[in-house]
Amino acid sequence: MNTRTTHEPIIRMVNIEKHFGSVIALAGVSVDVYPGECHCLLGDNGAGKSTFIKTMSGVHKPTAGEILFDGKPMHFDDPRDAISAGIATVHQHLAMIPLMSVSRNFFMGNEPLKKIGPLKFFDHDLANQVTMEEMRKMGINLRGPDQAVGTLSGGERQTVAIARAVHFGAKVLILDEPTSALGVRQTANVLATIDKVRKQDVAVVFITHNVRHALAVGDRFTVLNRGQTLGTAQRGQITPEELQDMMAGGQELVALEESLGGTI
């Protein structure tokens, strides 16, 4: 189970701190992510999960701490830098633009160009063709590449976003709560997609506050609580109950769980 850690980590986040004015969203969090692993980031709402991965994807600059990408220190000035380094992020909200077609969304920020004379134009034919092909691979049958993303279901949107990240050769794929708004079958599809992507040697950072989703695909688990990490656990070294307790920040949930008959 533990073979992956013999590689070098693709990305190392060392003692990351992030303050928003007087709010300390992250108080020194360290996480290593290895190629081909699914690293689950767990934590309750407000724990700092989104903030943490936003420093990883160039949206936020960390207040303190270091990011090592492929062993070298990295400073991302904006998301473009992170994307061109190979870090693709599917954000919790706002991953796609509903009014735009699937094809325009798929290539947003990465538009394929074709030269006509000295001018460069958006290569719609290529974009449409690639989009249809990638969607078919993911098991989504579009009416056409010009179908608006707004007409897709939540799960389909997540899948488009993941397919897009993988298509553009992401080395690290960050998914911020991709399953939290989904139904059972859609969740299963997204988890299956994560599994597929991981097998292509992509490092997946999977954020969730659902322990069962995490245990379904995760190789390693890091729990964030109030901007701090309680360490990283390997698959098999930790029980679902322990994970749940760590997320809740202690023992108070145990009492609650008992009173509810163990259904949480």
């Binding site: 949206v59 954000h91 706002l94 509903p98 947003m108 920020g109």
Partner: peptide
């Protein structure tokens, strides 16, 4: 369409 989503996708 959505400035935040566009920015996150690398659109300036």
């Amino acid at each position: 369409g959505d400035a935040e989503a566009a920015r996150n996708s690398g659109v300036p």
